[in-house]
Nucleic acid binder design. Structure first.
Lengths: 246, 246
DNA sequence: CGGCTGCTTGAAATGAGTCAACATAGGTGG
DNA sequence: CCACCTATGTTGACTCATTTCAAGCAGCCG
């Protein structure tokens, strides 16, 4: 392992780097002090490639060659897949600190499209480079696999939501999930600013737009939430939570 | 890279190893000739730990510490997750050549339970060792990430199935999917031997047992399939396929 | 044999979808 | 600045796919 004197110059980069990783949800990354300068530089570069997207801009398209994964730094991404018959399925909404593109890690092509729903800043991680760095930095590999595991867990709870819950439960779960994720991302307050349309929510949850609208209305009438267009204030968290696990 | 003379002794291990990998769905693994003997031996050992399970035996439980992933060598596994309120959701049925346990790659705990539905032989891959070997064998890492990508794609098509398809489409898709996967696994013939119960199918597809039963009956009446208990023969593939993408 | 689980079928109940009308907001262009 | 247009959201009435409830059957096992 490198001695401390050799590493003094690295310390600054090191902390910046850790901050960069954190912002890209490679959060708890515990870098070994033994990293050599070139690797450190490469890791630094990896997180350096940032892009600003306007609402409606595409990050990648289903079928595109997939050489990158992307970390959301601010704003909101939506991913969706289109079946052969044209059916669209929203796969997820991605908040700051979350990653997209895992379905294309094998250098084939993405099976979904990622689009910005708002002005969005992303961090563009080149897969080849990330893979390569993982080989040199075990903790980076760990971190990546950990994120992947988390992604699977999300998918699984989504499967349960779609298969077993009724419309009210779906909406309640959706709101609480969004709320807690915004909280994790550093946003506070009980007001949720939904960026997505009712149609996108409906699609995501496997229900009709009208049903989403109606259920929002019901929850408002029961004084559980308060709606103002796309701004939703959660008034009664407990009640909302109760609904999810009736 | 190592020269050929040094590797003659390795060649045999090499081919056996590749066969072992294939059987564990780390299939197209292209091993570099430059592997040193200890790594080769370790890789060999990794695939050596096999277990035989009887129907009903548990591979791992939701909440268990997760230090392993498992490759099905023969038989059938089912994975399912249980929500806080007790609701069960079947996440998947896993045929020979497929892997389970990806949701526990971060050394925390599994968020699902895996159980054998039939006499099943599995290959027990220790995660710590697999991770470590990935660091030394880039192609192994690639292969792992590729499998993971594929797993995400499966989840995504499942989300679409649950959110957007009606009961007939769900069943048709289920049967064709199972058929093609059995084919991939090396089983031939139009006869599907479903090992799982109707209730498990229903749970998986987010519908009632009675509906599964009824739709099987309808498809049989239309001469698309032929049912004999848990053995289902697909008579009209095209028609079945048409149903999936109505 | 009795009791169990798994599967099927029928009839009734219902949750959510569809269709349709209308309201609202934002954007464009004359 | 107003008129118009489109996209989005809401609400009501009706329809229908699927669930629920109920009953019966078949196979299996101690």
């Amino acid at each position: 392992m490198a001695n401390s004197s050799e590493n003094i110059a690295q310390i600054i980069d090191f902390n910046e780097l850790k901050a960069a990783c954190r912002s890209c949800s490679l959060g708890e990354l515990c870098l070994p002090r033994s990293l050599d300068k070139t690797d450190l530089k490469r890791l630094d570069n990896l997180f350096e490639d940032r892009k600003l997207l306007h609402s409606g801009e595409i990050v990648f398209r289903q079928g595109d060659d997939s050489n990158h994964i992307y970390a959301v730094r601010s704003g909101l991404l939506k991913t969706f897949t289109i079946a052969k018959d044209g059916t669209e399925q929203v796969l997820g909404f991605h908040l700051p600190g979350e990653l997209v593109g895992f379905d294309g890690m094998d250098n084939h092509s993405y099976d979904c499209t990622a689009i910005a729903l708002d002005t969005t800043s992303i961090c563009d991680l080149q897969m080849r480079e990330l893979k390569d760095l993982c080989l040199k930095i075990p903790s980076l590999q760990n971190q990546l696999l950990s994120l992947i595991s988390g992604e699977f867990r999300k998918d699984h709870s989504m499967l349960l939501l779609l298969a077993k819950r009724n419309s009210v439960q779906k909406i309640a779960t959706f709101l609480l999930d969004l709320y807690s994720r915004y909280k994790t991302a550093g946003y506070s307050g009980d007001e949720l600013r939904l960026i997505m349309t009712r149609a996108e929510i409906a699609n995501y949850l496997g229900m009709a737009v009208e049903t989403v609208s109606r259920i929002f209305a019901v929850l408002q009438r029961k004084n559980i939430i308060c709606i103002d267009g796309r701004v939703i204030k959660i008034i009664n968290h407990e009640e909302l939570y109760k609904i999810t696990e009736i």
